[in-house]
């Protein structure tokens, strides 16, 4: 046994500087929560009858108006699917070239990198509903505005993630192809693509999954899809139709998730 030390040694988890940084963060976070709680307007009367209102909501929804499905839901449901899928495809077509520009190992030009990054950030900072507002104003209400808003919102997401995958590509195979004097297109196709293909599909599927959910609400601002039917049912207070539409959206979303995870496990 070593001799007992003169003074008892103590240990703390963080250095004083780390402790200060952390406690400052906690204080700021706590202050933000307290400020929000105090400032946010909550009307107590509304809260008291919330259970009643919720019960009422479900009572009005059930039984669903099944007869409404062939008349008012089926076609817009298909349209929603088209908006999400076409929007994703369009986003990929636009985002992939840009992500090559954004990847610093492929494009050695800081200006081009920055431009591509800027496009991605702008695309992501604008919510798809806002993109939908813009495109409805330009092309009028309908699925076209929906497709474009989905596409423009997704460019940033797909581009950022795919660009990061490109930057993580191993240098070895690419240098080997460069060394034998392969043209740039071959380097792209045989050097980068095989390495990033799994990432590409996983990003594409992930975004498609998200876009199915997002395209269901675009109709609230007139950009086509099942949201149009939802908006109409809400405005008319046909809760049994609202219930049906929500159930349909739920089913589609679950089905999408099953499909994407099946594809993912097949190809990745």
């Amino acid at each position: 046994m070593t001799a007992a030390p003169a003074s008892v040694r103590r240990w703390t988890r963080f250095t004083p500087a780390e402790r200060v940084a952390r406690s400052m963060l906690y204080v700021v976070a706590a202050a933000a929560v307290v400020w929000s709680l105090k400032a946010v307007e909550i009307i107590p009367e509304f809260l008291y009858d919330a259970p009643e209102q919720t019960a009422d909501l479900f009572k009005r929804m059930w039984p669903f108006d099944w007869g409404f499905y062939p008349k008012g839901v089926h076609d817009v449901l298909i349209e929603t699917f088209h908006i999400a899928t076409l929007g994703t495809i369009l986003a990929i077509l636009l985002a992939v070239p840009l992500s090559f520009l954004a990847a610093r190992n492929f494009t050695r030009n800081p200006l081009l990198n920055f431009v591509a990054q800027f496009v991605f950030v702008s695309s992501r900072s604008v919510n798809s509903l806002i993109w939908a507002l813009l495109f409805v104003a330009i092309f009028g209400p309908g699925a076209l505005a929906g497709v474009l808003s989905i596409a423009f919102r997704s460019i940033g997401f797909v581009g950022k993630l795919f660009g990061e995958a490109l930057e993580e590509a191993q240098r070895g195979p690419i240098e080997a192809l460069t060394a034998v004097g392969a043209p740039r297109i071959t380097i792209l196709g045989k050097g980068y693509w095989p390495q990033v293909e799994p990432a590409f599909w996983s990003v594409a599927l992930l975004r498609w999954d998200i876009n199915i959910r997002e395209s269901a609400v675009l109709g609230l601002v007139g950009a086509g899809g099942i949201g149009v039917a939802l908006d109409a049912a809400l405005n008319n207070l046909y809760w049994d139709q609202v219930g049906l539409i929500l159930a349909v959206i739920f089913a589609v979303v679950i089905a999408t998730e099953i499909v994407t995870s099946a594809i993912r496990s097949r190809i990745l």
Partner: peptide, 14 residues
């Protein structure tokens, strides 16, 4: 499964 906007429709009612 539901977009936050749809969930808020339900909560606005509740």
């Amino acid at each position: 499964s539901f977009h936050p906007v749809i969930v808020s429709i339900l909560f606005v009612k509740a």
